Simulated assay, not measured.
Amino acid sequence: MKEIMAIVRINMMNQTKKALAEAGISSITARDALGRGKGLVDLTLLEGAEKGYEEAVVQLGQTQRLVPKRVFFVVVPDRLVQKTVNTIIKVNRSGKSGDGKIFVMPVRDAVRVRTGESGDQVLDEV
């Protein structure tokens, strides 16, 4: 099984939840997040600020540093990873900077607290 962590635009969260549910992935955990990609920062200004150049620090301070995003987590059996990732991409891809990122990580086990069941049987099934 794998954990899929996706960072998307806030305004895309409802469409993403709906698309995942339609794909048979109904369990999801979401949180508010703040972040930025490299596209939102002039890297030469950042380098100058790191070197202590006051002009760069002042200019960098005028730019938006962190953007509100939504991060959500889904744990699925290995056979549903590609379907889940493709669904997230399909909904969130605009072709513009800031569409988001998806990370896929291994999960050793999952346990349903109510019953004590473990493994893939506690996950969404399609």
Rank of each mutant, 00 (worst) to 15 (best):
K69A: 00
D78V: 10
V85A: 00
V113C: 09
G24F: 03
A30R: 10
E3W: 07
R114S: 06
G116A: 04
F72S: 03
S97H: 13
M1Q: 07
E50S: 14
K96T: 11
E22S: 11
G37Y: 03
E125M: 15
R65G: 12
R93L: 08
G39H: 06
D99H: 05
N86L: 13
K101F: 13
I88W: 08
L123D: 04
K90F: 04
V75L: 02
K90R: 14
V74G: 07
L123Y: 01
G98M: 03
T87H: 01
E22F: 02
F72K: 02
P68W: 06
V74Y: 04
Q59N: 11
D32N: 15
R70H: 12
V126F: 13
T16W: 01
V76I: 00
I102N: 08
D42W: 09
P77A: 11
L46C: 13
Q64E: 15
I102K: 05
E117R: 10
A23G: 06
E22A: 07
K18D: 15
T44P: 07
I7P: 01
R70Q: 12
E47W: 15
I25C: 08
V113P: 04
D120N: 11
V81Y: 01
F72D: 05
V41T: 08
P106K: 11
K83L: 07
G116T: 07
A19K: 10
A33D: 10
G100Y: 02
I25S: 02
I88Q: 01
A21W: 10
D120H: 09
A56S: 12
G119M: 01
L123V: 04
R108E: 13
M12I: 10
V126S: 15
V126N: 14
